[in-house]
Design a protein around this nucleic acid. Structure first.
Lengths: 210, 210
DNA sequence: ATGCCTACCAACCGATCGGTCAGTTAGTTA
DNA sequence: TAACTAACTGACCGATCGGTTGGTAGGCAT
């Protein structure tokens, strides 16, 4: 039946309670982490009572893992849908970076959730199902670059390029909210412009031609 | 007076209780974050009782901020001690990256603590004294690169280079423990080798000379 | 000796934590 | 109609949270 909905209410009311729990849990966990969020908060945000959350998920950990694997899954599916047929290295890289960045900003909460696991202590969730997913996604990016590896300078592997590109995008995303407050160095242009700059930097190098 | 020290004991016993509290708090907060650590845990790790922690620090938040600003301070002092006199762009960059990376691994806990703030929600500590410190440190790095900005290609600013270099180092540090478990792409050499590779990549570009 | 200060501790406080339980409601099947 | 099930709720549980209180022990100046 329709939940009370006079309680929190401004939200949801269309989607099922389970869906609302998952959505709100993703936002809250992404923003404050596993320990920073109580089940009560999730329940309140979803417009249900705490016991109802435990009706759908046996433990807090189970809810967290469900939200996390869901986020990984969505990332994987979006990556699978990306096709870079018959494009050269530069065009491929540009498309890859654009797709990646667009995805990060379309799903900021899921992204932050994954980044939390990626950068946190590895013992916490190391046996969870997300690790193989992350591995697979990275390998797929490497694969996309391998197809044009003949355009790479000697000694530069597709894996290295993938790591550098993804790192810059992810770290940029991770710190962009702080950068706004910080106005780092006063300079550093807008985000798309900045991205274009470091991609160009990557392709052609830093040093002035002598 | 010497604290009971028969309690936790295997640790410390030389340094003062206050010092032990700060040291253990840094480790714990770095590993599990503000919400993931209780004052009792800190007290136990430091070999004192909980009330003693509140004798030295009015609130948990105050302890956290003290540990955090201390970490920022140490970073700033190490950066100030770094001198790059009369070196060219490539040598400067190499030295900068080496210093940065060495520092990160000499003080992993302090680094993780700062990264937590740098990548977390900005509302939490935005008015804390650490923001100006971070700003200042970044500006100093930009300054070191500006002195050789004439060696940079047109359109490439020292700030951009600083951001890219620091990002790659920091994100690499953030994810290296997971990378070990993940064995990303099976390849990707050892850390110093990998660092040499992406620095070379940055200097000379990705694309093969045509 | 007295008084005072800092360091330190056991015991305690109200609030909140993750989680349980008994029971209600509504839709489904028979 | 009766029986069953999934969704849902308020009230409750023991444990732990951040923080307080009252008091002890030693160092030090007078």
């Amino acid at each position: 039946m329709v939940p009370t909905l006079l309680a929190s209410a401004y939200e949801a009311s269309e989607k099922s309670a389970l869906t609302r729990i998952l959505v709100e849990a993703e936002v809250l966990f992404a923003e404050r982490g596993f320990d920073g969020v109580s089940i009560n908060e999730v329940a309140l945000a979803a417009g249900v009572c705490k016991a109802n959350v435990f009706h759908h998920f046996a433990t807090k950990q189970e809810l967290y893992e469900r939200v996390l694997t869901q986020a990984c899954d969505i990332f994987g599916r979006s990556l699978d849908a990306l096709e870079l047929k018959e494009q050269g290295l530069a065009a491929r890289l540009r498309r890859l970076v654009e797709w990646h960045n667009a995805f990060l900003h379309q799903r900021p909460h899921g992204t932050r959730l994954i980044l939390r696991e990626l950068t946190g202590s590895p013992t916490v969730l190391e046996r969870s199902p997300v690790f193989p997913l992350i591995q697979r996604n990275f390998d797929r990016v490497v694969g996309l670059l391998s197809e044009v590896s003949d355009e790479l300078r000697e000694g530069i592997s597709p894996a290295l390029v993938a790591k550098v590109v993804l790192s810059l995008n992810l770290f940029g995303f991770q710190t962009e909210r702080v950068n706004e407050k910080l106005m780092v160095a006063g300079s550093l242009a807008t985000r798309p412009e900045l991205q274009r700059q470091w991609l160009d930097l990557l392709l052609h190098g830093i040093e002035a031609p002598s």
